[in-house]
Nucleic acid binder design. Structure first.
Lengths: 254, 254
DNA sequence: CGTTCTCTCTGTACGCTGTACAGTGTACGA
DNA sequence: TCGTACACTGTACAGCGTACAGAGAGAACG
Protein backbone atom coordinates (compact mmCIF):
# COMPACT_ATOMS: atom_id res chain seq x y z
CA UNK A 1 0.00 0.00 0.00
CA UNK A 2 1.34 3.45 -0.74
CA UNK A 3 3.40 4.69 2.13
CA UNK A 4 3.02 8.15 0.76
CA UNK A 5 0.01 10.14 1.85
CA UNK A 6 -1.21 13.04 -0.13
CA UNK A 7 0.05 16.50 0.60
CA UNK A 8 -2.41 19.00 1.96
CA UNK A 9 -2.14 22.23 0.02
CA UNK A 10 -1.84 21.79 -3.77
CA UNK A 11 -0.84 25.39 -4.40
CA UNK A 12 2.07 25.28 -1.96
CA UNK A 13 3.20 21.91 -3.30
CA UNK A 14 3.23 23.19 -6.88
CA UNK A 15 5.08 26.31 -5.83
CA UNK A 16 7.73 24.16 -4.17
CA UNK A 17 7.99 21.81 -7.13
CA UNK A 18 8.53 24.62 -9.60
CA UNK A 19 10.72 26.56 -7.18
CA UNK A 20 8.36 29.48 -7.45
CA UNK A 21 10.31 31.34 -4.80
CA UNK A 22 7.97 34.30 -4.67
CA UNK A 23 5.02 32.22 -3.61
CA UNK A 24 6.97 30.25 -1.02
CA UNK A 25 8.10 33.03 1.30
CA UNK A 26 6.12 36.27 1.12
CA UNK A 27 7.47 38.86 3.50
CA UNK A 28 11.13 39.86 3.75
CA UNK A 29 10.73 40.56 7.44
CA UNK A 30 12.49 38.43 10.01
CA UNK A 31 15.65 36.32 9.84
CA UNK A 32 16.79 34.62 6.64
CA UNK A 33 16.47 30.87 6.32
CA UNK A 34 19.72 28.98 6.84
CA UNK A 35 18.88 25.96 4.71
CA UNK A 36 17.34 25.52 1.27
CA UNK A 37 14.67 23.15 0.08
CA UNK A 38 17.18 21.73 -2.39
CA UNK A 39 19.66 20.86 0.34
CA UNK A 40 16.95 19.08 2.29
CA UNK A 41 15.75 17.19 -0.77
CA UNK A 42 19.26 16.18 -1.76
CA UNK A 43 20.05 14.96 1.72
CA UNK A 44 16.88 12.91 1.79
CA UNK A 45 17.62 11.44 -1.65
CA UNK A 46 21.07 10.41 -0.51
CA UNK A 47 19.60 8.62 2.47
CA UNK A 48 16.95 6.88 0.40
CA UNK A 49 19.56 5.74 -2.11
CA UNK A 50 21.74 4.32 0.62
CA UNK A 51 19.25 2.83 3.05
CA UNK A 52 15.85 2.79 1.39
CA UNK A 53 12.85 5.07 1.67
CA UNK A 54 11.89 3.67 5.07
CA UNK A 55 15.18 4.95 6.44
CA UNK A 56 14.28 8.52 5.49
CA UNK A 57 12.70 9.96 8.61
CA UNK A 58 12.26 13.60 9.39
CA UNK A 59 14.43 13.21 12.47
CA UNK A 60 17.24 11.56 10.56
CA UNK A 61 17.20 14.12 7.74
CA UNK A 62 17.24 16.91 10.30
CA UNK A 63 20.12 15.36 12.18
CA UNK A 64 22.13 15.05 8.97
CA UNK A 65 21.59 18.78 8.41
CA UNK A 66 22.45 19.68 12.02
CA UNK A 67 19.04 21.05 12.73
CA UNK A 68 16.11 20.21 14.98
CA UNK A 69 13.50 17.92 13.46
CA UNK A 70 10.74 20.50 13.48
CA UNK A 71 12.89 22.93 11.52
CA UNK A 72 12.23 20.96 8.36
CA UNK A 73 8.57 21.88 8.60
CA UNK A 74 9.54 25.48 7.98
CA UNK A 75 10.59 24.44 4.49
CA UNK A 76 8.24 21.63 3.65
CA UNK A 77 4.66 21.10 4.82
CA UNK A 78 4.81 17.29 5.18
CA UNK A 79 6.89 14.26 4.62
CA UNK A 80 4.62 13.34 1.71
CA UNK A 81 5.52 16.60 0.00
CA UNK A 82 9.20 15.99 0.68
CA UNK A 83 8.94 12.63 -1.06
CA UNK A 84 7.20 14.27 -4.01
CA UNK A 85 10.04 16.75 -4.25
CA UNK A 86 12.58 13.93 -4.10
CA UNK A 87 10.67 12.12 -6.83
CA UNK A 88 10.49 15.07 -9.18
CA UNK A 89 14.10 16.00 -8.63
CA UNK A 90 15.39 12.49 -9.33
CA UNK A 91 13.33 12.26 -12.51
CA UNK A 92 14.56 15.63 -13.65
CA UNK A 93 18.18 14.60 -13.19
CA UNK A 94 18.00 11.25 -14.97
CA UNK A 95 20.00 10.42 -18.07
CA UNK A 96 18.44 10.88 -21.51
CA UNK A 97 20.21 8.80 -24.11
CA UNK A 98 17.49 8.50 -26.75
CA UNK A 99 19.18 8.55 -30.15
CA UNK A 100 17.31 11.10 -32.24
CA UNK A 101 16.21 9.93 -35.65
CA UNK A 102 16.92 6.26 -35.06
CA UNK A 103 14.42 3.44 -35.50
CA UNK A 104 11.56 3.48 -33.00
CA UNK A 105 12.73 0.19 -31.56
CA UNK A 106 16.10 1.65 -30.68
CA UNK A 107 14.51 4.81 -29.33
CA UNK A 108 12.17 2.88 -27.06
CA UNK A 109 14.99 0.60 -25.98
CA UNK A 110 16.95 3.67 -24.95
CA UNK A 111 13.96 4.97 -22.98
CA UNK A 112 13.65 1.62 -21.21
CA UNK A 113 17.36 1.53 -20.41
CA UNK A 114 17.25 5.08 -19.10
CA UNK A 115 14.43 4.15 -16.77
CA UNK A 116 16.15 1.01 -15.65
CA UNK A 117 19.23 3.07 -14.84
CA UNK A 118 17.05 5.51 -12.92
CA UNK A 119 15.65 2.75 -10.73
CA UNK A 120 19.10 1.25 -10.34
CA UNK A 121 20.40 4.56 -9.00
CA UNK A 122 17.29 5.30 -6.90
CA UNK A 123 15.53 2.03 -6.05
CA UNK A 124 13.11 3.81 -3.72
CA UNK A 125 11.43 5.49 -6.71
CA UNK A 126 9.79 2.15 -7.46
CA UNK A 127 7.86 2.55 -4.22
CA UNK A 128 6.54 6.01 -5.03
CA UNK A 129 2.98 6.30 -6.14
CA UNK A 130 2.54 7.39 -9.74
CA UNK A 131 -1.17 8.08 -9.82
CA UNK A 132 -1.71 11.79 -9.49
CA UNK A 133 2.03 12.26 -9.84
CA UNK A 134 3.82 15.30 -8.54
CA UNK A 135 3.48 17.52 -11.60
CA UNK A 136 6.84 19.17 -11.29
CA UNK A 137 9.43 20.15 -13.89
CA UNK A 138 11.22 16.81 -13.67
CA UNK A 139 8.10 14.77 -14.28
CA UNK A 140 7.05 16.99 -17.17
CA UNK A 141 10.48 16.95 -18.80
CA UNK A 142 10.65 13.18 -18.53
CA UNK A 143 7.22 12.77 -20.06
CA UNK A 144 8.07 15.13 -22.89
CA UNK A 145 11.34 13.35 -23.63
CA UNK A 146 9.78 9.92 -23.61
CA UNK A 147 6.80 10.84 -25.73
CA UNK A 148 9.26 11.93 -28.37
CA UNK A 149 10.38 8.33 -28.82
CA UNK A 150 6.86 7.49 -29.97
CA UNK A 151 6.43 10.50 -32.23
CA UNK A 152 5.85 10.13 -35.95
CA UNK A 153 4.65 6.54 -35.81
CA UNK A 154 1.10 7.31 -36.80
CA UNK A 155 -0.30 6.65 -33.35
CA UNK A 156 -3.34 8.44 -32.01
CA UNK A 157 -2.51 10.63 -29.03
CA UNK A 158 -4.32 8.32 -26.64
CA UNK A 159 -2.43 5.29 -27.94
CA UNK A 160 0.85 7.14 -27.77
CA UNK A 161 0.26 7.74 -24.08
CA UNK A 162 -0.94 4.18 -23.53
CA UNK A 163 2.07 2.68 -25.30
CA UNK A 164 4.46 4.73 -23.20
CA UNK A 165 2.63 3.86 -20.00
CA UNK A 166 2.82 0.20 -20.99
CA UNK A 167 6.56 0.33 -21.49
CA UNK A 168 7.22 2.32 -18.33
CA UNK A 169 5.00 0.13 -16.20
CA UNK A 170 6.96 -2.87 -17.37
CA UNK A 171 10.28 -1.35 -16.34
CA UNK A 172 8.75 -0.19 -13.06
CA UNK A 173 7.57 -3.72 -12.32
CA UNK A 174 11.05 -5.11 -12.81
CA UNK A 175 12.46 -2.35 -10.63
CA UNK A 176 9.98 -3.02 -7.86
CA UNK A 177 10.81 -6.70 -7.85
CA UNK A 178 14.51 -5.92 -7.82
CA UNK A 179 14.09 -3.43 -4.99
CA UNK A 180 12.08 -5.97 -3.01
CA UNK A 181 14.77 -8.58 -3.53
CA UNK A 182 17.46 -6.18 -2.39
CA UNK A 183 15.45 -5.15 0.66
CA UNK A 184 14.79 -8.78 1.53
CA UNK A 185 18.47 -9.60 1.31
CA UNK A 186 19.34 -6.65 3.53
CA UNK A 187 16.63 -7.16 6.12
CA UNK A 188 17.31 -10.85 6.49
CA UNK A 189 21.07 -10.48 6.16
CA UNK A 190 20.84 -13.46 3.81
CA UNK A 191 21.44 -13.92 0.09
CA UNK A 192 18.88 -15.70 -2.05
CA UNK A 193 21.09 -18.76 -2.19
CA UNK A 194 21.47 -18.87 1.59
CA UNK A 195 17.73 -18.39 1.98
CA UNK A 196 17.10 -21.39 -0.24
CA UNK A 197 19.65 -23.48 1.60
CA UNK A 198 17.61 -22.96 4.75
CA UNK A 199 14.09 -23.03 3.33
CA UNK A 200 14.57 -25.70 0.68
CA UNK A 201 15.03 -28.64 3.05
CA UNK A 202 12.25 -27.36 5.31
CA UNK A 203 9.89 -27.02 2.35
CA UNK A 204 10.54 -30.60 1.28
CA UNK A 205 8.86 -31.83 4.44
CA UNK A 206 5.51 -30.19 3.68
CA UNK A 207 5.60 -29.83 -0.09
CA UNK A 208 4.25 -32.77 -2.11
CA UNK A 209 5.81 -32.77 -5.62
CA UNK A 210 3.07 -35.08 -6.90
CA UNK A 211 0.44 -32.43 -6.19
CA UNK A 212 2.35 -29.70 -7.99
CA UNK A 213 4.19 -31.42 -10.85
CA UNK A 214 4.49 -28.37 -13.09
CA UNK A 215 5.52 -26.09 -10.27
CA UNK A 216 8.15 -28.59 -9.23
CA UNK A 217 9.56 -29.05 -12.72
CA UNK A 218 9.49 -25.46 -13.91
CA UNK A 219 10.32 -23.95 -10.54
CA UNK A 220 13.38 -26.13 -10.20
CA UNK A 221 14.56 -25.32 -13.72
CA UNK A 222 14.02 -21.58 -13.30
CA UNK A 223 15.53 -21.53 -9.83
CA UNK A 224 18.64 -23.33 -10.94
CA UNK A 225 19.06 -21.28 -14.10
CA UNK A 226 18.95 -17.93 -12.36
CA UNK A 227 20.27 -19.00 -8.96
CA UNK A 228 17.21 -17.58 -7.21
CA UNK A 229 13.45 -17.52 -7.49
CA UNK A 230 13.68 -14.29 -9.47
CA UNK A 231 16.39 -12.71 -11.57
CA UNK A 232 15.66 -9.09 -12.50
CA UNK A 233 18.22 -8.92 -15.31
CA UNK A 234 16.82 -11.98 -17.03
CA UNK A 235 13.24 -10.81 -16.56
CA UNK A 236 14.18 -7.42 -18.00
CA UNK A 237 15.84 -8.80 -21.13
CA UNK A 238 13.04 -11.27 -21.71
CA UNK A 239 10.27 -8.80 -21.03
CA UNK A 240 11.66 -5.89 -23.03
CA UNK A 241 11.78 -8.04 -26.15
CA UNK A 242 8.14 -9.05 -25.58
CA UNK A 243 7.08 -5.46 -24.95
CA UNK A 244 8.66 -4.24 -28.17
CA UNK A 245 7.22 -7.13 -30.17
CA UNK A 246 3.82 -6.44 -28.70
CA UNK A 247 4.00 -2.78 -29.64
CA UNK A 248 5.29 -3.63 -33.10
CA UNK A 249 2.14 -5.62 -33.76
CA UNK A 250 0.10 -2.50 -33.12
CA UNK A 251 2.03 0.07 -35.15
CA UNK A 252 0.48 1.17 -38.44
CA UNK A 253 3.81 1.19 -40.27
CA UNK A 254 5.87 -1.94 -40.55
CA UNK B 1 9.57 0.31 -0.44
CA UNK B 2 8.32 -2.93 0.99
CA UNK B 3 6.39 -2.32 4.14
CA UNK B 4 6.71 -5.96 4.93
CA UNK B 5 9.76 -7.06 6.85
CA UNK B 6 10.95 -10.61 6.71
CA UNK B 7 9.76 -13.10 9.29
CA UNK B 8 12.30 -14.41 11.71
CA UNK B 9 12.00 -18.21 11.91
CA UNK B 10 11.55 -19.91 8.50
CA UNK B 11 10.57 -23.27 10.00
CA UNK B 12 7.75 -21.81 12.08
CA UNK B 13 6.52 -19.71 9.16
CA UNK B 14 6.38 -22.73 6.86
CA UNK B 15 4.59 -24.77 9.53
CA UNK B 16 1.98 -22.02 9.83
CA UNK B 17 1.59 -21.67 6.08
CA UNK B 18 0.98 -25.37 5.58
CA UNK B 19 -1.11 -25.61 8.75
CA UNK B 20 1.29 -28.23 10.05
CA UNK B 21 -0.56 -28.29 13.37
CA UNK B 22 1.82 -30.75 15.00
CA UNK B 23 4.78 -28.47 14.61
CA UNK B 24 2.94 -25.36 15.76
CA UNK B 25 1.90 -26.34 19.28
CA UNK B 26 3.77 -29.25 20.78
CA UNK B 27 2.55 -30.06 24.27
CA UNK B 28 -1.12 -30.60 25.22
CA UNK B 29 -0.43 -29.20 28.68
CA UNK B 30 -2.06 -26.01 29.79
CA UNK B 31 -5.22 -24.25 28.59
CA UNK B 32 -6.49 -24.63 25.03
CA UNK B 33 -6.24 -21.72 22.62
CA UNK B 34 -9.49 -19.84 22.16
CA UNK B 35 -8.78 -18.50 18.66
CA UNK B 36 -7.38 -20.04 15.52
CA UNK B 37 -4.79 -18.75 13.11
CA UNK B 38 -7.40 -18.90 10.38
CA UNK B 39 -9.78 -16.64 12.25
CA UNK B 40 -7.01 -14.11 12.80
CA UNK B 41 -5.96 -14.23 9.17
CA UNK B 42 -9.52 -13.89 7.91
CA UNK B 43 -10.19 -10.94 10.19
CA UNK B 44 -7.03 -9.23 8.98
CA UNK B 45 -7.92 -9.89 5.35
CA UNK B 46 -11.34 -8.36 5.87
CA UNK B 47 -9.78 -5.25 7.31
CA UNK B 48 -7.23 -4.96 4.52
CA UNK B 49 -9.95 -5.35 1.89
CA UNK B 50 -12.04 -2.63 3.47
CA UNK B 51 -9.47 -0.08 4.59
CA UNK B 52 -6.13 -1.00 3.05
CA UNK B 53 -3.10 -2.79 4.41
CA UNK B 54 -2.03 0.22 6.45
CA UNK B 55 -5.26 -0.05 8.44
CA UNK B 56 -4.34 -3.56 9.56
CA UNK B 57 -2.64 -3.06 12.90
CA UNK B 58 -2.12 -5.69 15.56
CA UNK B 59 -4.21 -3.64 17.99
CA UNK B 60 -7.10 -3.31 15.59
CA UNK B 61 -7.13 -6.97 14.65
CA UNK B 62 -7.01 -7.91 18.32
CA UNK B 63 -9.86 -5.55 19.13
CA UNK B 64 -12.00 -7.03 16.37
CA UNK B 65 -11.43 -10.45 17.92
CA UNK B 66 -12.13 -9.21 21.46
CA UNK B 67 -8.69 -10.01 22.69
CA UNK B 68 -5.68 -8.13 24.00
CA UNK B 69 -3.15 -7.06 21.36
CA UNK B 70 -0.37 -9.24 22.68
CA UNK B 71 -2.56 -12.31 22.48
CA UNK B 72 -2.05 -12.41 18.73
CA UNK B 73 1.61 -13.08 19.30
CA UNK B 74 0.67 -16.43 20.80
CA UNK B 75 -0.53 -17.46 17.35
CA UNK B 76 1.77 -15.62 14.99
CA UNK B 77 5.40 -14.60 15.55
CA UNK B 78 5.08 -11.16 13.97
CA UNK B 79 3.07 -8.93 11.72
CA UNK B 80 5.23 -9.77 8.70
CA UNK B 81 4.30 -13.43 9.09
CA UNK B 82 0.64 -12.51 9.46
CA UNK B 83 0.79 -10.66 6.17
CA UNK B 84 2.44 -13.66 4.53
CA UNK B 85 -0.40 -15.84 5.79
CA UNK B 86 -2.96 -13.37 4.46
CA UNK B 87 -1.17 -13.37 1.12
CA UNK B 88 -1.04 -17.13 0.76
CA UNK B 89 -4.62 -17.56 1.87
CA UNK B 90 -5.99 -15.01 -0.58
CA UNK B 91 -4.04 -16.59 -3.44
CA UNK B 92 -5.30 -20.02 -2.49
CA UNK B 93 -8.91 -18.84 -2.53
CA UNK B 94 -8.83 -17.00 -5.84
CA UNK B 95 -10.98 -18.01 -8.83
CA UNK B 96 -9.54 -20.32 -11.50
CA UNK B 97 -11.45 -20.00 -14.74
CA UNK B 98 -8.85 -21.21 -17.21
CA UNK B 99 -10.70 -23.13 -19.97
CA UNK B 100 -8.88 -26.44 -20.38
CA UNK B 101 -7.93 -27.35 -23.90
CA UNK B 102 -8.65 -23.96 -25.38
CA UNK B 103 -6.21 -21.89 -27.40
CA UNK B 104 -3.24 -20.58 -25.43
CA UNK B 105 -4.40 -17.02 -25.99
CA UNK B 106 -7.70 -17.71 -24.31
CA UNK B 107 -6.03 -19.62 -21.52
CA UNK B 108 -3.62 -16.78 -20.80
CA UNK B 109 -6.41 -14.25 -21.03
CA UNK B 110 -8.28 -16.21 -18.38
CA UNK B 111 -5.20 -16.25 -16.16
CA UNK B 112 -4.85 -12.50 -16.54
CA UNK B 113 -8.54 -11.92 -15.77
CA UNK B 114 -8.32 -14.18 -12.72
CA UNK B 115 -5.42 -12.15 -11.42
CA UNK B 116 -7.15 -8.88 -12.15
CA UNK B 117 -10.16 -10.11 -10.20
CA UNK B 118 -7.86 -11.12 -7.35
CA UNK B 119 -6.40 -7.64 -7.12
CA UNK B 120 -9.85 -6.13 -7.46
CA UNK B 121 -11.06 -8.12 -4.46
CA UNK B 122 -7.86 -7.63 -2.44
CA UNK B 123 -6.11 -4.46 -3.59
CA UNK B 124 -3.58 -4.71 -0.76
CA UNK B 125 -1.99 -7.74 -2.40
CA UNK B 126 -0.44 -5.42 -4.93
CA UNK B 127 1.64 -3.98 -2.10
CA UNK B 128 2.97 -7.34 -0.92
CA UNK B 129 6.49 -8.23 -1.84
CA UNK B 130 6.79 -11.12 -4.28
CA UNK B 131 10.50 -11.78 -4.10
CA UNK B 132 11.07 -14.71 -1.78
CA UNK B 133 7.33 -15.25 -1.67
CA UNK B 134 5.63 -17.05 1.16
CA UNK B 135 5.88 -20.60 -0.18
CA UNK B 136 2.54 -21.78 1.12
CA UNK B 137 -0.13 -23.99 -0.41
CA UNK B 138 -1.95 -21.07 -1.98
CA UNK B 139 1.12 -19.72 -3.74
CA UNK B 140 2.09 -23.17 -4.98
CA UNK B 141 -1.41 -24.01 -6.23
CA UNK B 142 -1.62 -20.71 -8.07
CA UNK B 143 1.76 -21.24 -9.71
CA UNK B 144 0.81 -24.77 -10.74
CA UNK B 145 -2.49 -23.64 -12.20
CA UNK B 146 -0.98 -20.78 -14.12
CA UNK B 147 1.92 -22.76 -15.51
CA UNK B 148 -0.65 -25.10 -17.00
CA UNK B 149 -1.84 -22.34 -19.30
CA UNK B 150 1.62 -22.30 -20.88
CA UNK B 151 2.00 -26.06 -21.12
CA UNK B 152 2.40 -27.83 -24.45
CA UNK B 153 3.56 -24.77 -26.36
CA UNK B 154 7.08 -26.01 -26.92
CA UNK B 155 8.62 -23.56 -24.48
CA UNK B 156 11.74 -24.36 -22.50
CA UNK B 157 11.06 -24.53 -18.77
CA UNK B 158 12.95 -21.31 -18.15
CA UNK B 159 10.97 -19.49 -20.82
CA UNK B 160 7.71 -20.88 -19.51
CA UNK B 161 8.48 -19.35 -16.14
CA UNK B 162 9.65 -16.10 -17.68
CA UNK B 163 6.54 -15.79 -19.84
CA UNK B 164 4.28 -16.32 -16.87
CA UNK B 165 6.23 -13.84 -14.78
CA UNK B 166 5.96 -11.33 -17.60
CA UNK B 167 2.19 -11.68 -17.78
CA UNK B 168 1.69 -11.57 -14.02
CA UNK B 169 3.98 -8.61 -13.55
CA UNK B 170 1.93 -6.73 -16.11
CA UNK B 171 -1.33 -7.38 -14.25
CA UNK B 172 0.35 -6.56 -10.95
CA UNK B 173 1.53 -3.23 -12.34
CA UNK B 174 -2.00 -2.30 -13.36
CA UNK B 175 -3.28 -3.37 -9.96
CA UNK B 176 -0.70 -1.31 -8.13
CA UNK B 177 -1.58 1.76 -10.12
CA UNK B 178 -5.27 1.18 -9.51
CA UNK B 179 -4.70 0.66 -5.79
CA UNK B 180 -2.64 3.84 -5.64
CA UNK B 181 -5.38 5.76 -7.39
CA UNK B 182 -8.00 4.43 -5.01
CA UNK B 183 -5.86 5.21 -1.99
CA UNK B 184 -5.19 8.72 -3.28
CA UNK B 185 -8.89 9.32 -3.77
CA UNK B 186 -9.64 8.09 -0.26
CA UNK B 187 -6.83 9.92 1.50
CA UNK B 188 -7.53 13.20 -0.19
CA UNK B 189 -11.31 12.74 -0.13
CA UNK B 190 -11.21 13.95 -3.72
CA UNK B 191 -11.95 12.31 -7.05
CA UNK B 192 -9.51 12.57 -9.93
CA UNK B 193 -11.76 15.07 -11.64
CA UNK B 194 -11.99 17.26 -8.53
CA UNK B 195 -8.23 17.01 -8.11
CA UNK B 196 -7.74 18.29 -11.63
CA UNK B 197 -10.24 21.08 -11.14
CA UNK B 198 -8.05 22.35 -8.32
CA UNK B 199 -4.60 21.56 -9.69
CA UNK B 200 -5.21 22.34 -13.35
CA UNK B 201 -5.63 26.12 -12.96
CA UNK B 202 -2.74 26.25 -10.51
CA UNK B 203 -0.50 24.32 -12.87
CA UNK B 204 -1.21 26.71 -15.69
CA UNK B 205 0.54 29.47 -13.80
CA UNK B 206 3.90 27.65 -13.66
CA UNK B 207 3.68 25.28 -16.62
CA UNK B 208 4.90 26.59 -19.97
CA UNK B 209 3.20 24.69 -22.83
CA UNK B 210 5.86 25.87 -25.27
CA UNK B 211 8.54 24.04 -23.32
CA UNK B 212 6.60 20.79 -23.26
CA UNK B 213 4.63 20.67 -26.51
CA UNK B 214 4.25 16.89 -26.71
CA UNK B 215 3.37 16.54 -23.04
CA UNK B 216 0.76 19.24 -23.45
CA UNK B 217 -0.79 17.73 -26.54
CA UNK B 218 -0.74 14.06 -25.57
CA UNK B 219 -1.42 14.67 -21.91
CA UNK B 220 -4.48 16.72 -22.68
CA UNK B 221 -5.80 14.12 -25.12
CA UNK B 222 -5.22 11.24 -22.74
CA UNK B 223 -6.56 13.11 -19.76
CA UNK B 224 -9.72 14.06 -21.54
CA UNK B 225 -10.28 10.59 -23.01
CA UNK B 226 -10.03 8.77 -19.71
CA UNK B 227 -11.23 11.54 -17.41
CA UNK B 228 -8.08 11.29 -15.31
CA UNK B 229 -4.32 11.04 -15.66
CA UNK B 230 -4.58 7.26 -15.52
CA UNK B 231 -7.37 4.82 -16.29
CA UNK B 232 -6.65 1.26 -15.10
CA UNK B 233 -9.32 -0.38 -17.24
CA UNK B 234 -8.03 1.20 -20.40
CA UNK B 235 -4.43 0.43 -19.53
CA UNK B 236 -5.37 -3.17 -18.82
CA UNK B 237 -7.18 -3.73 -22.11
CA UNK B 238 -4.45 -2.02 -24.08
CA UNK B 239 -1.62 -3.76 -22.27
CA UNK B 240 -3.05 -7.25 -22.28
CA UNK B 241 -3.33 -7.19 -26.06
CA UNK B 242 0.30 -6.08 -26.30
CA UNK B 243 1.45 -8.73 -23.84
CA UNK B 244 -0.25 -11.51 -25.78
CA UNK B 245 1.06 -10.23 -29.11
CA UNK B 246 4.53 -10.04 -27.63
CA UNK B 247 4.36 -13.60 -26.39
CA UNK B 248 2.92 -14.79 -29.69
CA UNK B 249 6.00 -13.54 -31.49
CA UNK B 250 8.11 -15.84 -29.33
CA UNK B 251 6.12 -19.05 -29.49
CA UNK B 252 7.54 -21.81 -31.73
CA UNK B 253 4.15 -22.76 -33.11
CA UNK B 254 2.07 -20.30 -35.01
C1' DC C 1 19.50 54.43 16.48
C1' DG C 2 16.00 52.36 19.08
C1' DT C 3 11.61 50.02 18.46
C1' DT C 4 8.66 46.83 16.66
C1' DC C 5 7.16 43.25 14.20
C1' DT C 6 7.62 38.96 11.89
C1' DC C 7 9.55 34.94 10.74
C1' DT C 8 12.94 31.07 11.95
C1' DC C 9 13.98 27.76 14.83
C1' DT C 10 13.15 24.44 18.54
C1' DG C 11 11.41 21.75 23.01
C1' DT C 12 7.75 19.43 24.40
C1' DA C 13 4.05 16.50 23.80
C1' DC C 14 0.45 13.43 21.64
C1' DG C 15 -1.22 9.57 19.42
C1' DC C 16 0.15 6.00 16.80
C1' DT C 17 3.02 1.80 15.51
C1' DG C 18 5.29 -3.14 16.51
C1' DT C 19 6.60 -5.91 20.14
C1' DA C 20 9.81 -7.38 24.46
C1' DC C 21 9.03 -8.93 28.95
C1' DA C 22 7.17 -10.35 33.20
C1' DG C 23 3.29 -11.77 35.71
C1' DT C 24 -1.24 -14.27 36.31
C1' DG C 25 -4.42 -17.81 36.06
C1' DT C 26 -6.02 -22.07 34.05
C1' DA C 27 -6.41 -26.87 32.86
C1' DC C 28 -4.20 -31.00 31.83
C1' DG C 29 -0.95 -35.14 33.05
C1' DA C 30 0.87 -37.54 36.72
C1' DT D 1 -4.45 -33.40 44.43
C1' DC D 2 -0.45 -31.41 42.95
C1' DG D 3 2.86 -29.51 39.80
C1' DT D 4 3.68 -27.64 35.65
C1' DA D 5 3.39 -25.87 31.07
C1' DC D 6 1.04 -22.91 28.55
C1' DA D 7 -2.52 -19.01 27.07
C1' DC D 8 -3.34 -14.71 27.91
C1' DT D 9 -2.47 -9.80 29.18
C1' DG D 10 -0.71 -5.07 31.36
C1' DT D 11 2.94 -2.36 31.12
C1' DA D 12 6.58 -0.33 28.84
C1' DC D 13 9.87 1.23 25.22
C1' DA D 14 11.67 3.02 21.09
C1' DG D 15 10.43 5.01 17.04
C1' DC D 16 7.34 7.49 13.80
C1' DG D 17 4.91 12.11 11.88
C1' DT D 18 3.72 16.38 13.44
C1' DA D 19 0.64 20.04 16.32
C1' DC D 20 1.58 23.79 19.16
C1' DA D 21 3.60 27.38 21.72
C1' DG D 22 7.48 29.89 23.09
C1' DA D 23 12.18 32.00 22.38
C1' DG D 24 15.12 34.73 19.95
C1' DA D 25 17.07 37.01 15.97
C1' DG D 26 17.21 40.32 12.47
C1' DA D 27 15.26 43.39 8.97
C1' DA D 28 12.34 47.45 8.19
C1' DC D 29 10.34 51.54 10.05
C1' DG D 30 9.93 55.80 12.72
Amino acid sequence: MPTERRAADPARTLALLWRDSGAVSASPRGPRQTLTVDRIVDTAIGMADADGLDAVTMRRVAQALDVAPMTLYTYVPDKATLVELMFDRALGAMARTEPAGAHWRDRLTAVAHDNRALYEAHPWIAACSTSRPALGPGVCAKYEYELNALEGLGLADVDQDAALTFLLEFVAGIARAAADARAAARDSAMSDVEWWEINGPLLEKVFDPARYPLATRVGAAAGEAQQSAYNPDHAYRFGLARVLDGLAAMLPEK
